[in-house]
Structure formats: structure tokens, C-alpha cells
């Protein structure tokens, strides 16, 4: 559905007198299959939105190629526009208009006739449970209602692919869960959904496949399960006093069952092991033997944050 090769974009920014070039996206290669929810995960400023805006024909790439729903992004952006829907991050509705008016107008901007546009609006209002508010001005809507209108706008012309830029940012937990259902519904209607997010749980729960982006590059790509499997095995968190941490690290480093060991700044260790259940007793014995007292021990399955951490050396939560 989407294939990109070496997509690049840099911006010139001016700070005081000097201009410097910021490479926002430095060569992105992606493959998105038909009918999947593809997630673009990364911290703010990683280049997710820039990539998305390039794919949605809003900014021109400096280099690279892309094919979107069979149309060539560089040679035929007009055709790409006809085949995609795009829902921007910061909203796209006008305060003084009603949802119905916005939907009809937007459909007509795609060249759809008036009667057809009106019918589509009715169906979209129904599908997104907006019928009740259809003729109220957008400024009276709640955040969740307004976001639903915006998504309805993005798909009013039944595109093959819809791009959603941070669709759940700023929504309360309930609206967020609701939005996830809406997005899954798009997939079951046969659409390919491309979302950006900086929420780990969202990427994990919602996306069929994800690409992790950092600093303008894709650092990992795969299904959430695959990516987590790459972090072979489990993670054991050992809670220790700051003073005891170096000694414990020394004691455990080089043990055959520890694949990788990291020290937390606030004290404690993070051990990557093959099998948590068998590693924990050995860790306990080793620390006991060394005469070290531990405060807690926890086993957890690797999260996407662990994937991010191993790929970039930083935690997504920190960045």
C-alpha cells in the first residue's frame, strides 16, 4: 500500500544570525501492507509528522521516492490526494460550521456531487455517533466529538489509506479507548490506517505493525510482538540501595544467564535474561551469597519502551 525509499527532508532554521540545517527526516524506508494499522512510534521531534506530511503531499520531500496506493508521490501527487485521507494533529474543523456542513463541504472538495455528499455525511454522522450533534456548531463539541468529526472528514471520500497524526493526543482515557475502536473499525472496513503516536501502549495495543522512529530515522520495524522478542527473553528489575548497586552489578555481571545488565541512576539493576522464572532464584542466591540486601525484585516482559531503549539508548518516557 505504501512503499518509501530513502525519503528525506531537511529544514533551515534561523537562530539569531546563523542559519542551520536540521535534517528532520534522513532516509526513511517503509513498507505498509494493505489493511493493516501501521504505527509510527517515536518521541516528539523524531520526524514522524514530517514524514506523514510528506506522504500526504503537504510538503515536498528533498529526496527519495514513495508509492502510495499505487500512485507515485513525486510524479503524481494529485492522484495520491485522491486516494488518501489525512487527519492533521491540530484539528481541522471551523468553529462556526456544523459537522454536517463540514462533511458535505469536504466530500465536495473531492469532486463528489451534492446529493451524494449529503448522503455520505448522513452515513458518516451515523457511523461516528454524531447524528445528535450534526447541526450544532463545532465550537460546542467536546474534544472527543470534535476528533471524531475530523476522522469522519478524513475518510468521507472512502480512501484506500488514511493518515492519522496523533489521533488520541489530548483525549481523556475514555475517549481514547473509544477512538481505538473507531480506528479498528476503519481497518475492518478494509482501509489501511497509518497513525503516528508517542504512546507506547497505543502502539502496542492498536497497531499491527510499527516503525520506531528516532532522530529522523527508522530504528526498528516489525510487529510489536516481534520487536519485543528481539529483546530476547525477559527483564528482571532488581531494587537495590544506591550504595549496594555497584557491588551487585559486579556480582551479577558475567553470570551465564544474564544477557545484558544496566544500572539505573537512582539505584537498582535491570537484567535482560532468557527466562525470568529460572533467573530470579539464581539472582537471589548470588546476591545473598555476596551479602547484599535487596529491596525488591520484579519480572516483566519487555515492553516497547525496552525496544526503544535498546535501539536508541534512551527511554521513550524520558525523551
Amino acid at each position: 500500500m505504501i512503499e518509501t525509499r530513502g525519503l528525506r527532508k531537511s529544514f533551515r532554521s534561523r537562530a539569531g544570525r546563523e542559519t542551520k540545517t536540521v535534517d528532520a527526516v534522513r532516509g526513511v524506508n517503509l513498507q505498509v501492507a494493505e489493511g493493516e494499522i501501521f504505527g509510527f512510534l517515536g518521541p516528539n521531534g523524531a520526524g514522524k509528522t514530517t514524514t506523514l506530511r510528506m506522504l500526504a503531499t503537504l510538503i515536498e520531500p528533498d529526496g527519495g521516492e514513495a508509492t502510495i496506493a499505487g500512485a507515485d508521490l513525486r510524479k503524481d501527487p494529485a492522484e495520491v490526494r485522491r486516494r488518501i485521507g489525512y487527519v492533521p494533529q491540530g484539528g481541522s474543523t471551523w468553529d462556526e460550521s456544523t459537522a454536517r456542513e463540514e462533511l458535505v463541504l469536504h466530500a465536495r472538495m473531492y469532486g463528489i456531487g451534492k446529493a451524494d455528499a449529503q448522503q455520505r455525511a448522513v452515513r458518516a454522522l451515523e457511523a461516528f455517533q454524531l447524528t445528535e450533534y450534526a447541526d450544532r456548531k463545532c465550537k460546542t463539541y467536546s474534544g472527543g466529538q470534535r476528533r471524531r468529526v475530523e476522522i469522519a472528514l478524513g475518510i468521507i471520500h472512502e480512501p484506500k489509506i488514511v493518515f492519522l497524526d496523533e489521533p488520541t493526543t489530548g483525549l481523556d482515557p475514555q475517549s481514547r479507548a473509544h477512538m481505538w475502536d473507531e480506528i479498528r473499525r476503519l481497518r475492518s472496513d478494509g482501509m489501511t490506517v497509518f497513525i503516528t503516536t508517542h504512546y507506547l501502549d497505543e502502539a502496542d495495543a492498536l497497531c499491527d505493525r510499527i516503525a520506531i522512529m528516532d532522530n529522523g530515522e527508522v530504528v526498528a520495524e516489525g510487529t510489536p510482538a516481534e520487536l519485543k522478542r528481539e529483546i530476547s527473553g525477559d527483564v528482571v528489575l532488581v531494587g537495590l540501595d544506591l550504595a549496594a548497586t555497584p557491588q551487585a552489578a559486579q556480582a551479577l555481571d558475567g553470570e551465564s544467564y544474564v544477557n545484558k545488565l544496566e544500572t539505573a541512576d537512582e539505584g537498582g539493576l535491570r537484567l535482560y535474561v532468557d527466562e525470568g522464572a529460572t533467573a530470579i532464584p539464581q539472582v537471589l542466591r548470588r546476591l545473598d551469597h555476596a551479602g547484599l540486601e535487596l529491596r525488591s525484585i520484579e519480572l516483566h516482559r519487555p515492553s516497547l519502551d525496552d525496544v526503544f531503549l535498546t535501539k536508541t539508548g534512551r527511554s521513550l518516557r524520558e525523551s
Binding site: 494529485a78 474543523t93 472538495m109
Partner: peptide
């Protein structure tokens, strides 16, 4: 004001 509301961007992704 329309730019800020995203209305223009929304129009620009259509073939209008």
C-alpha cells in the same frame, strides 16, 4: 484564523 484551525491544511490534501 483558518490556517490555525487547520481548515486550509485540510483543503490542501484534497484535489481541489
Amino acid at each position: 484564523a483558518e490556517l490555525r484551525a487547520g481548515v486550509i491544511e485540510r483543503s490542501r490534501v484534497t484535489p481541489i
